[in-house]
Design a protein around this nucleic acid. Structure first.
Lengths: 342, 342
DNA sequence: TGCGAAAATGTACGCGCGTACATTACGTCA
DNA sequence: TGACGTAATGTACGCGCGTACATTTTCGCA
């Protein structure tokens, strides 16, 4: 491997000049620039990224922390893949690296050492909940004023930056859509309230009912944990209450699909006996029968936005002062599972 | 941030001893060890990972390169998520980092500079094809004897390590299962032949027919590109040939599901009019109606295996000599889409 | 032609660590 | 008690780069 010194010698300049040319800093005569580039090319010189990072004192990596759930699938792979895609684009455009870090959900996670050890320059947290164990790690980052951002989660700690989706509005639209389609006895199957989107969806559901002059009814509220299995389990309760229901809004597609399957096994027809609307518009929504009406969430754009905001502010990050919050719009995708009531 | 020097002073030892304790190398008196650890704890000392990597001349990162496909979804998110999970586990156990790198499919990709610039110590390539543009990058790595491994792809270049799945055997089993279930006119919808699993699945399909004394028939062979859309498109051809078919084996679940949907729209019943078996056993297979019989591929284990082999051999990697190949078993998961012929 | 400012380049050092090698402390056995 | 081998620790340096600062060159203008 050619060294910077060799390049300097071949080009007849000092190492500093080579460095300047390669980093595009400082004034350099065009002719010199060409000579250096030519020499570097000839020697097949590759900058030692590690040494460069070390000298700069920054790793050049954005850390992305996501929950690792071996068996139970509370999150769809779709969810994270889309966000990672968006983050990946933004990261690459800025010539940085994307360090993937897994954490165990519902357990404390030490984010701060990742910064102190200069493994990452900034951090994006995916799939976070409001559980105390998880919030603790977030708070620790906030205490240090470190550059990080949570996606799709509004932390109790206002010092945590976030990029979220308009779940409340999306849910309101979804339920409004059901009402406009002739449904009146609309239930709600929510996921764990430890996740902020759950609470927002419930608020949207409530608001839509209120706006339509419909009374919320505790008998129409069901609880799951975002897994398909929990949707199947909820089917039992839903089935028992079927005469109090003509539609149900479900907090994600996985549960909606599990619910739909289990209900079908009991002879319930969708949407004739019960209309269903899900959330996420994951690719599975279009695969099931009937295709599932769902609230689309721009996961990719959310990832991209979070990474962009974070990395663009990084050079002059001023701790808590630099905190940002952004909310991206959701969109209702209407399919057959919520066809107008006949 | 506390420095190594401060720790050394507080513990009353030299920096070298601190280093030895923290890295667990060389002989250190137990009492000294405790004093150093105590001092480090007291000062909240964090090793500067970047500096350590620099001094060692190794980044401590495993690069994982995967195709970035903005719109078209040739790969299911399931595919990569599972593999990343497995890789992530192995990487964490070894105290290394996982650097995620996106590449554009069907375009040349420069792997070698990632090594030369010491951004990564080893590399795993996901979703690779045999297209010349893609093979070129792989060959370049092999030429240098670099430590890398491809997952689920058998490269033309034997110097490329690989961890694959027994697709041929899995496919053979799938088709054999169809035959045992009473089907005789069995078609095959394959994905792009540029992917080695496609070729293996075709071989397995052929072998099962041959073993059962059935003649392959070009009229029963169909082509897609692994996307759900291509499955839908293939439905047209399949529908036209329906009287020559009573079952069809499809090279992945996405196409199988697209095909199933489009056929259903034309009034074809599964499995009564046409049985279907897919590949991958992605989570969607269990979500569709009827649930899809599919060949399970141990993506997670494949990721883990690749990372383990690679990282464990890394300390004394001897170029092409160290190349390895592994094939993990597949398993047929029978569901209703291939119920015995009535 | 001379001069001053800006442009261009060179010199020199530190970033924080791992580790080869030198040195010292310790324990054993004759 | 002295010599010797090994355990334990200290000293010193280099890894390859970015960059502050010193130095030289260039060029416009009087």
């Amino acid at each position: 491997m050619a060294s910077r010194k060799e390049v300097a010698e071949l080009a007849g300049v000092s190492e500093a000049t080579v460095s300047r040319v390669l980093n595009g800093v400082g004034p350099v005569r065009e002719e010199t620039r060409q000579r250096v580039l030519e020499a570097a090319r000839k020697l097949n010189y590759q900058i030692h990224a590690l040494a460069a990072s070390f000298a700069r004192g920054r790793s050049g990596n954005l850390g992305v922390v996501l929950p690792h759930v071996p068996k139970v699938r509370l999150f769809s792979t779709y969810y994270f893949s889309e966000m990672l895609d968006g983050i990946g684009e933004a990261v690459r455009e800025r010539g940085m690296g994307l360090l993937l870090l897994y954490r165990r959900p519902q357990e404390p996670f030490d984010y701060v050492p990742l910064f102190r050890s200069v493994r990452i320059d900034a951090c994006i947290v995916l799939g976070a909940s409001s559980l105390p164990e998880e919030e603790a790690g977030i708070r620790a980052m906030a205490d240090e004023g470190l550059p990080f951002c949570m996606i799709d989660h509004r932390s109790g700690d206002g010092r945590a930056s976030s990029v979220c989706a308009a779940h409340e509005e999306g849910s309101r639209r979804a339920v409004q859509h059901l009402i406009e389609s002739g449904y009146r006895k609309i239930g709600f199957l929510n996921g764990s309230p430890w996740y902020s989107p759950s609470r927002e969806r419930e608020a949207g559901y409530m608001r839509a009912l209120r706006e339509a002059g419909l009374a919320p009814d505790p008998k129409r509220m069901f609880a799951g944990n975002y897994s398909r299995t929990s949707g199947r389990r909820a089917a039992e309760d839903v089935y028992a209450r079927l005469r109090d229901l003509d539609a149900i809004f479900v907090a994600n597609d996985r549960m909606a699909i599990g619910l739909m399957q289990a209900l079908r096994e009991r002879g319930v027809r969708v949407p004739d006996d019960l209309a269903i609307v899900g959330c996420d518009d994951s690719d599975a929504a279009a695969m099931v029968d009937p295709p599932l009406t769902s609230v689309r969430v721009p996961f990719g754009a959310m990832g991209r936005t979070a990474a962009e905001r974070l990395l663009d502010r990084l050079p002059d990050w001023r701790g808590t002062e630099s905190v940002f919050h952004e909310t991206l719009a959701t969109e209702l995708v209407v399919r057959e599972s919520s066809a107008p009531r006949s």
